[in-house]
Design a protein around this nucleic acid. Structure first.
Length: 528
RNA sequence: GUCCUCGUAGCUCAGCUGGAUAGAGCACCGGAUUCCUAAUCCGGAGGCCGUGCGUUCGAAUCGCGCCGGGGACACCA
């Protein structure tokens, strides 16, 4: 819709201009302040220029009115134009708001260590990534959703050790010395119990079994993580194992050496990341020959870029932001364009319940489980609330709020608007297919503006995706629902002479809400 | 100390590629149901847009300084 307007306006202006949506629909559907900037060029008042420009649009069918007001040029779309768009959307709902974007994107998110269940912070990144994925695909991008599994390194050993010690303490009389660092929390004990069933008690009396427990525990945790994600309607296209990637270490390392990216000092191998904008050089191989975590990420990103996507997006916890510079440096050294990698940071979540704050700390074991929250408020409410805020700002919410069933709970409010439409059709004994042929013409101001608002979804999702600000979609759906509720209260629909037209308008609103919700992984309700 | 991020209504937050009277929800106060679901709607109250200077015809929005909150600064992942 915006594109049609833009093209039409451009035809008459022939130069750069900003097309914006006026704050108040009474001004028009679209507007441009172009006369203000032209005022300087032509040395005439903006008001005069706007008036002259307005006359050029007299014959354009997509506008019913183009007027100059206080220097602004305001455009009002015609009924015919809006009706045509609505008819298309209702008849071909699947393709409503579809984009024609092209290009491949590798989207990596969650990538939580397989050393425990997902907590609420992971959930935020997961929901954001999954929704970005769904919207991006709808817009036409070829996106792959990937999970990087950190199944190598010290934390996997610690997982095995923790299971080993927990089992030793619970099921044997042997002495237990807890190290400074280990995983705690109920799930470790549960794993120990399972390990006992799988391997027998003897597994806790021989340190050699730690390795076996590590490997086994990691697989259990990966299963758990997948199931946590599935419960929130999140699935991945690919899982990439850090451990498996290490087979390519020599090859990657040779490439770094060939590109003069590394040096040896104090018995360690360093990456010259400070040459590429990082604060300092980073160790990638320790004195004892073990590669650092960064080495794994270097292999991974080399491998990612070998796969040749147009663009790469990583969603990381905000605490990793210092890590961006070194990974980009490595990409640069490997001969790839670091600007193709975009990192979106996902900030902390502070959860309240009845006003009481929860604290979370993965190491201490008292973190809030994603699965607990999903169970308590439902995956859909959780998804929605996460999407109402920018990913890189702190988010605070009260789980009790998500359990209320009134307008304080935005997901309910939107679902109710959708259900209302369905109820109207039932009441009238008609279906959308039966009213779609009625022309939405000669509508009053409210209906006309509601129709216009419902048709904004394509530009809203494009804006939300390109700016990575998915709250634009939730905000939009909230305001569309509000608009519809107002309309419903003000205008009787069933049994009036305009019944068919208003039902068609309602059907359009429902198509938009349903599509918007679907892109967020939420199913619209037909009855509440 | 360096870097990142945030500071807008009592609370949680939108708005920020500069533009028309600064928005929403919650909470608070007052209304609406013989009429399609009141799970809704209408009205009211509530703001030196942290602060100072600058750029501009125009600044919540851009720039610099300051104040305040949070985070990151590993050979941990």
């Amino acid at each position: 819709m915006k594109k049609s307007v833009h093209n039409t306006v451009k035809k008459h202006l022939g130069e750069d201009f900003v097309l914006e949506k006026p704050k108040d629909l009474a001004f028009g559907h679209y507007a441009t302040p172009v006369a203000f900037s032209l005022a300087k060029v032509y040395r005439k008042s903006p008001m005069l220029i706007a008036e002259e420009l307005a006359e050029k649009f007299a014959d354009e069918a997509i506008f019913t009115k183009v007027e100059a007001l206080k220097g602004y040029l305001n455009f009002k779309l015609s009924d015919t134009f809006l009706d045509q768009k609505a008819t298309e959307a209702i008849l071909d709902e699947k393709n409503f708001a579809k984009g024609e974007k092209s290009g491949t994107i590798l989207l990596e998110y969650v990538s939580a260590n397989p050393t425990g269940p997902l907590h609420i912070g992971h959930a935020r990144g997961a929901v954001f990534g999954d929704t970005l994925y769904k919207i991006g695909k709808h817009l036409g991008y070829d996106i792959t959703a990937e999970y990087y599994v950190n199944d190598a390194g010290n934390q996997i050993y610690l997982l095995g050790l923790s299971i080993y010690l927990a089992g030793r303490e619970a099921f044997t009389d042997l002495e237990v010395t807890w190290p400074e660092e280990y995983y705690r929390g109920e799930y470790i004990f549960d794993l120990a119990k399972q390990a006992k069933e799988a391997f027998g008690e003897a597994v806790f009396s021989d340190e050699k079994s730690i390795e076996k427990l590590s490997e086994w525990g990691k697989d259990r945790m990966l299963d758990l993580i997948r199931s946590n994600l599935a419960d929130a309607n999140i699935t991945f296209d690919t899982f990439v194992s850090e451990k498996a990637l290490f087979a390519k270490w020599d090859e990657t390392f040779e490439k770094l050496k060939a590109n003069n990216a590394v040096y040896e000092k104090e018995g360690k191998v360093w990456l010259k990341s400070s040459e590429k904008g990082d604060e300092k050089d980073r160790v990638i191989v320790r004195e004892d020959g073990r590669p650092t975590y960064l080495a794994g990420d270097i292999i991974y990103h080399n491998e990612k870029f070998e796969r040749g996507y147009d663009h790469y997006i990583n969603i990381w916890g905000a605490d990793h932001h210092g890590y961006i510079a070194r990974v980009k440096a490595a990409i640069d050294f490997l001969g790839y364009d670091p600007d193709k990698l975009e990192v979106i940071l996902s900030q902390m979540v502070a959860l309240l319940k009845g006003g009481e704050p929860y604290k979370m700390s993965k190491r201490a074991g008292n973190f809030i489980l994603m699965s607990d929250v999903v169970e308590e408020v439902g995956a859909e409410a959780l998804r929605f609330i996460f999407l109402t805020k920018k990913s890189d700002t702190h988010l605070e919410f009260d789980v009790d709020m998500l359990k209320t069933q009134d307008s304080s709970n935005p997901i309910y409010y939107i679902q109710y608007a959708h259900a209302r439409v369905n109820q109207l059709f039932e009441k009238a004994g008609k279906t959308p297919a039966e009213v779609v042929s009625f022309k939405l013409e000669e509508l009053d101001e409210d209906a006309h503006n509601l129709l216009f608002t419902a048709l904004l979804l394509p530009e809203v999702i494009e804006d939300a995706f390109e700016s990575r600000q998915l709250q634009k979609l939730t905000d939009y759906l909230k305001s569309l629902a509000a608009f519809y509720h107002q309309f419903y209260n003000k205008h009787k629909i069933v049994g009036t002479k305009n019944e068919d037209k208003l039902l068609k308008l309602s059907a359009m609103v429902a198509v938009t809400i349903r599509t918007g919700l679907r892109l967020m992984g939420i199913e619209a309700k037909y009855k509440m």
